[in-house]
Simulated assay, not measured.
Amino acid sequence: MELLTIGKISGTHHLKGAVKITFNIDNPSVLAGEKIIVAIDENDMRILTVKSVSPLVGNRWVAEFEEITNKTEAGNLKNGFIKIRREILGLDEDEYLLTDLVGMNVIDVKTGENIGKVKEIFDTAAHDILVVDSPEAEAMIPNIQEFVKNIDFEKREIHVELIEGLRELKGKKYSQDDGMDEE
């Protein structure tokens, strides 16, 4: 069974045991009535039933669980990650979550070079940015069609076309005289 991490509990909301959760999915209300896993750490995971989910502000929501009845119990869930079965989201075959891209190899379509792995993804006002890391360099690649040419989920590869300036070598700095200099 494949589990997706879709949010993180940031704290309690009121005395009856509700929690505040920052979600990375569009519509957390689909979780109402579903069983989820709250992973506090490797050894502490709890299966809970979502009683209700309501919007707070931005991507932050308030959730109540059947099994949690007071603020103390809710406080024990702080910093826990929300994990669910993929089928709960009802994604179509061609849909994916941005978190699905984390850990994938990134390949330059022109050279065939493995640029590195997606370390994280962050959102800007215009589009998402893939942060790709390798021992030699780091790249920040906009997740748009001009740069991301293909995503192969079976091979766990993202094929990209880079332009100058998207990739920065580690241990080097820019010099106007001759390009790159050792630090």
Score class of each variant (00 low, 15 high):
Met1Glu: 11
Met1Thr: 14
Glu2Gly: 05
Leu3Val: 11
Thr5Gln: 11
Thr5Asp: 12
Ile6Tyr: 04
Gly7Cys: 04
Lys8Val: 11
Ser10Ile: 02
Ser10Val: 00
His14Ile: 08
Lys16Glu: 15
Ala18Thr: 02
Val19Arg: 02
Lys20Val: 15
Lys20Ser: 12
Lys20Leu: 15
Phe23Thr: 05
Asn24Phe: 08
Leu31Ser: 04
Leu31Glu: 01
Ala32Tyr: 08
Gly33Asn: 01
Glu34Val: 00
Val38Gln: 00
Ala39Gly: 04
Ile40Lys: 03
Asp41Gln: 11
Asp41Ile: 07
Glu42Met: 11
Leu48His: 02
Thr49His: 06
Thr49Val: 04
Val50Trp: 02
Val50Leu: 06
Val50Ala: 04
Lys51Tyr: 15
Val53Pro: 13
Val53Gln: 12
Pro55Cys: 09
Gly58Ala: 14
Val62Ser: 13
Ala63Lys: 01
Glu64Met: 11
Glu66Tyr: 00
Thr69Met: 10
Asn70Pro: 03
Asn70Leu: 03
Lys71Asn: 12
Lys71Phe: 14
Ala74Gly: 04
Gly75Thr: 05
Asn76Ile: 08
Leu77Ser: 03
Lys78Leu: 03
Lys78Asn: 00
Asn79Thr: 07
Gly80Pro: 00
Gly80Leu: 00
Arg86Leu: 09
Glu87Phe: 15
Glu87Val: 13
Glu87Leu: 10
Ile88Ser: 08
Ile88Gly: 11
Leu89Gln: 12
Tyr96Gly: 01
Leu98Gly: 06
Thr99Asn: 15
Gly103Phe: 07
Met104Thr: 04
Val106Met: 06
Val109Gly: 12
Val109Glu: 14
Thr111Leu: 02
Asn114Tyr: 01
Lys119Arg: 14
Glu120Arg: 06
Asp123Ala: 13
Ala126Leu: 09
Val131Leu: 12
Val132Gly: 01
Val132Ile: 01
Asp133Phe: 01
Ser134Leu: 02
Pro135Cys: 05
Glu136Val: 10
Ile141Asn: 01
Ile141Gly: 02
Pro142Glu: 01
Ile144Lys: 02
Phe147Ala: 00
Val148Tyr: 01
Lys149Tyr: 09
Ile151Ala: 09
Asp152Tyr: 07
Asp152Lys: 06
Asp152Pro: 06
Phe153Gly: 05
Glu154His: 03
Glu157Gly: 02
Glu157Asp: 07
Glu157Met: 05
Ile158Phe: 07
Ile158Lys: 06
Ile158Gly: 07
Ile163Glu: 13
Glu164Val: 09
Leu166Tyr: 08
Arg167Glu: 10
Glu168Gln: 13
Glu168Asn: 09
Leu169His: 05
Leu169Tyr: 07
Leu169Asn: 06
Lys170Trp: 11
Tyr174Val: 11
Ser175Val: 07
Ser175Arg: 00
Asp177Tyr: 09
Asp178Val: 13
Gly179Ser: 11
Gly179Leu: 12
Asp181Met: 06
Glu182Phe: 08
